[in-house]
Design a protein around this nucleic acid. Sequence first.
DNA 1: CTAATATTTGACAACGTTGTCAATAAGTGG
DNA 2: CCACTTATTGACAACGTTGTCAAATATTAG
Lengths: 336, 336
Amino acid sequence: MVSIKQVAEQAGVSFKTVSRVVNKDPNVREETRARVLEAIAALNYRPNRAARMMRNQESGVIGFISDEVVTQPYAGDLLIGAQQVASLHDKVLMVVNIENDRVGRQRAIDMLLERRVEGLVYASYYHKEVQVPQEMLQVPSVLVNCYAENEALATFIPDEVQAGYDATRLLIEQGHKIIGHITLNPDIVAAVKRLEGYRKALAEAGIAYDPLLVVQGEPRFDEAANSVSVEQAVAALLELKHQPTAFVCGKDEFAMQAYFEFAKRGLQVGRDIAITSFDNQRMIAPGLSPGLTTMALPHFEMGQAAMNSIFNQGGDIATRLIPFSVIERQSHLLKN
Amino acid sequence: MVSIKQVAEQAGVSFKTVSRVVNKDPNVREETRARVLEAIAALNYRPNRAARMMRNQESGVIGFISDEVVTQPYAGDLLIGAQQVASLHDKVLMVVNIENDRVGRQRAIDMLLERRVEGLVYASYYHKEVQVPQEMLQVPSVLVNCYAENEALATFIPDEVQAGYDATRLLIEQGHKIIGHITLNPDIVAAVKRLEGYRKALAEAGIAYDPLLVVQGEPRFDEAANSVSVEQAVAALLELKHQPTAFVCGKDEFAMQAYFEFAKRGLQVGRDIAITSFDNQRMIAPGLSPGLTTMALPHFEMGQAAMNSIFNQGGDIATRLIPFSVIERQSHLLKN
DNA sequence: CTAATATTTGACAACGTTGTCAATAAGTGG
DNA sequence: CCACTTATTGACAACGTTGTCAAATATTAG
């Protein structure tokens, strides 16, 4: 690789002068500048970041540790949001994907710290608790889409309660009084928080909470994979004496299966039954008919917020809840 | 940040000795080593990669340029595959996500080259032609999931023809003779190649190609967003005089919509009609019933292959077709 | 045309490492 | 205990930059 000295030689000036040109120092004679620029172009010179970094002790790199973030549809938006803000500050992201083992994580952290990252984002691919390595505390760090119980770290997580509330509220506003809820695996934070939101919305509307209306759509992690299927769950609710007229589904896949179950029974979403859900899977939600009204996770916004907080962090350690956005399609409406 | 000299001072040795300990040079007295190690731990010293890099002129970084890779479900597997292989060689990935504008791409390349990346992966999120910046040729580079017409670059793309062939073959083997095909946007490489595979399978089985059986499931980029919907396309085929008994769908979303259209007409997949598709969207394919038989894009494998080629590249410039894998569920079978 | 001042340029050190080579300390054989 | 070999340690340069400061050159005023 060609260095500043070679450029200097070619241009017949000292290497310091080249440095000045490269850094746009105004105190260079126009004629000299031209000569240097020419040499730079001729040799295809590019300043070496490592050398620069040694001088000014700035790596310009933010570490992004994801436990599998990128495998999850659209959780990648988190990365994009983060990258966008980083770019604004002229920083780059170094992304490391760790398996869930301790050693991988340790190796990742070491590598990032050796590279003198100026900040660290730890993101998980679904909202959950994580164990963060102590070393993270050495640089400005944030947790995104995950939280650590006893660590003093700024944290950005989706507001699951609000999402559950809004998803339910949407149906209540359409006049529904008996609303079924197919929940996620109860080991997942989202499952319990969304249920909380569901109950809150009911309570607020003066509708009594009926536990019979809440069915689990997928098994706990430790149970056999095939417990009640979503179809069965939906079917069970539809056979209740007081049949629900609306459903809040734990995720769009559930909603998709619910649509099928409805179809099988001759029920038509938008006419006989209303439904809302979570995730806004672009693969599914717009393709159902009628289009599925669903709560979109604020991945992009969390990524942005997290990165912003790295740059502004005055030891701010708060946990910030980022709201879901309501993607209104047709499925929550009943037109007749 | 603490440097090697401070450690040396603390341990009462020269900084060179510390360097030796850090690099596991055997020519250090046990007692000295212990003392140094202690100082390292006490001060929490970490070697500075930038400085190392200046000495040995090795960045240990591979650039990964993705035009939106991470936004696409499971295309992230490409990243994971690449990272896995890079790790094996003790390299890290620097991921840059570029918007599709020329300046963003230029900025990304510049930044990576300034950081002296030892290789470059250019990945696109769906199989298409791209324009690669000339600078890429300065370091070992590969194209993944995309190709550049007149560049001498190693290229790894999914074998769309094979996928189309296999998806069709699966149905032919079940005895189907009239097989509908709902194609993707014809501007997409995948659409035309998969159709080619479809025709090849038919030809091989001695079935005449009937253009009436092939319908476009989504509009060209330049047309209005709402042309024929997939439901309409399926409906049209089902109203043909010689009704197809099987369908090859351009992607899993199409298949999902086809299932709905079938359901509406009282046709049951697995009994009355068979279907195969592409993409293996884990959000959809397993959730349909019966489970959707679909061709999985070899994202992970392409990532691995690409990275491998960076390390072994002896100016190898070939285009390698990576096979899809057949994910057999139930939808291609007819049990009666 | 000279002195004073402003502009442009260059020498050198430093950033934190590691490679080279010489200096010192520790063993070994007689 | 001495000469000699071997093991251990340290001094110094170099990697490619930029900051500091002094030197050289150009410009301006008188």
